Amino acid sequence: MKKIFFFTALFVFAGNILLAQFFKKEEGLAHTFSIVARDAKTGEMAVGVQSHWFSVGTAVPWGEAGVGVVATQSFVNKSYGPKGLALIKSGKTAPEALQELLAQDEGREVRQVAMIDTNGNVNAHTGKNCIDYASQIVSKNFSVQSNMMLNNKVCPAMAKAFEASEGKPLAERILIALQAAQAVGGDIRGKQSAAILVVAGKSTGQIWIDRLIDLRVDDNDLPLVEMERLLKLFRAYEHMDKGDLATEKNDMKLAMEEYGAAMKMFPKNLEMQYWTAITLANNKKVKEAGIMLQKIYKQDANWRELTKRLPKVNLLTVSEMDLKELIK
């Protein structure tokens, strides 16, 4: 009995030493499903992921415009993200970068990683010690991968959904693929967080412009439902931005069309309503603006106070008489 106990303890001890070689507390766990993809028409590249783990978006997805995107998961080695992008930037293809990093990693058999570069070169790795069900499908301009899934249907469902959604914007296609994965079972533990990252195909050298979409749901019972809402909200604010640009060019017809499109998507959003009203006022449509503002004030009087402050910084350019009409 003592010998059995000794060898059992020795095995556990040795296993813990081995685990320590490829897993560090600061690296975290991300047993999950994800997709990396490229839009051949726009050149955009994206990563999408969902997991039963807090804030998966801070560990799995990495991307740089004009370079590529990376998904690193399972027993996460976060360095695959920045190091992989650096290798691609130095001239290696995504598959070459992945192989170089795997060759240097003693914990490669518990890693799951996928990379795609700006030319569409793509590859993935699923270590033999990733927890079942663990698999990957590498195809033209995308790769889907998953580990610790309820069943073996996740990757096929993701691949099929992504291919069938061709023609839609890349972020929406990513979301559709993630939703398909969840619909067939997803993570055996459930769901908690999700993320979608989209970067431009060509770099402008301005990160704040090149990172096109960066949405995260860190903790939610239905992370993909919340992600769908956030993505829709993002698109609505895109309409608001286009409306602002049209206003700057004095194209009021286009501005109101864009503002109207945004408000149609989120009719209860006071922010969208408010700045649409202010734009109307600045374009001498004070009566229409006043009607909108009065409805807003009834829901939240703070917007009236904000209106009073706008003339000081030239965001509201109306006469004193018109201002009184707008804040009554």
Rank of each mutant, 00 (worst) to 15 (best):
287 K>V: 01
130 C>K: 05
131 I>T: 11
238 E>K: 14
94 A>L: 00
117 D>I: 06
262 A>G: 04
276 T>V: 06
82 P>I: 08
214 D>G: 07
272 M>D: 03
129 N>I: 05
289 A>W: 01
168 K>E: 14
212 L>G: 01
11 F>I: 12
128 K>S: 14
75 F>P: 08
308 K>H: 10
136 Q>N: 14
255 A>S: 12
296 I>T: 05
47 V>N: 06
152 N>I: 05
220 N>I: 03
150 L>A: 15
102 L>R: 07
259 Y>F: 15
327 I>Y: 01
277 A>T: 04
139 S>N: 14
36 V>A: 12
324 K>F: 06
142 F>V: 04
193 S>T: 09
168 K>R: 13
166 E>N: 10
21 Q>E: 08
187 D>H: 02
155 C>E: 13
205 G>F: 09
40 A>K: 13
65 A>G: 10
255 A>H: 06
295 K>T: 11
52 H>S: 12
81 G>I: 03
147 N>V: 11
257 E>I: 13
260 G>Q: 08
269 N>T: 12
40 A>F: 10
154 V>M: 08
20 A>V: 00
262 A>T: 02
270 L>G: 00
297 Y>Q: 00
136 Q>P: 03
254 L>V: 09
232 K>T: 11
173 R>M: 07
55 S>Q: 05
235 R>M: 13
324 K>A: 06
54 F>I: 04
207 I>K: 15
2 K>P: 07
183 A>M: 05
24 K>C: 03
156 P>G: 11
117 D>N: 08
19 L>C: 08
319 S>E: 06
191 K>M: 11
200 A>W: 02
317 T>V: 13
153 K>Q: 09
16 N>S: 15
288 E>G: 02
23 F>G: 01
40 A>V: 01
4 I>C: 12
121 N>A: 09
134 A>R: 03
41 K>V: 13
52 H>N: 07
170 L>A: 07
136 Q>V: 10
133 Y>C: 12
225 V>K: 12
31 H>M: 10
125 H>A: 01
315 L>S: 02
242 K>Q: 14
239 H>C: 05
64 E>H: 04
303 W>V: 01
326 L>C: 02
48 G>F: 09
320 E>S: 08
318 V>S: 05
54 F>L: 15
152 N>E: 14
270 L>V: 06
21 Q>G: 09
9 A>Q: 13
55 S>N: 12
316 L>Y: 03
212 L>N: 02
104 Q>C: 05
154 V>L: 08
320 E>G: 00
113 V>N: 10
300 D>F: 05
258 E>I: 06
3 K>Y: 15
186 G>W: 12
272 M>G: 08
18 L>Y: 11
225 V>S: 03
322 D>M: 01
52 H>E: 11
325 E>G: 08
38 R>N: 00
288 E>V: 01
131 I>D: 02
254 L>K: 12
212 L>T: 03
9 A>K: 08
112 Q>C: 09
70 V>A: 11
319 S>G: 13
321 M>C: 05
186 G>D: 02
88 I>A: 13
75 F>E: 10
58 T>E: 11
1 M>H: 15
324 K>T: 02
293 L>H: 09
87 L>I: 02
275 W>F: 14
171 A>C: 04
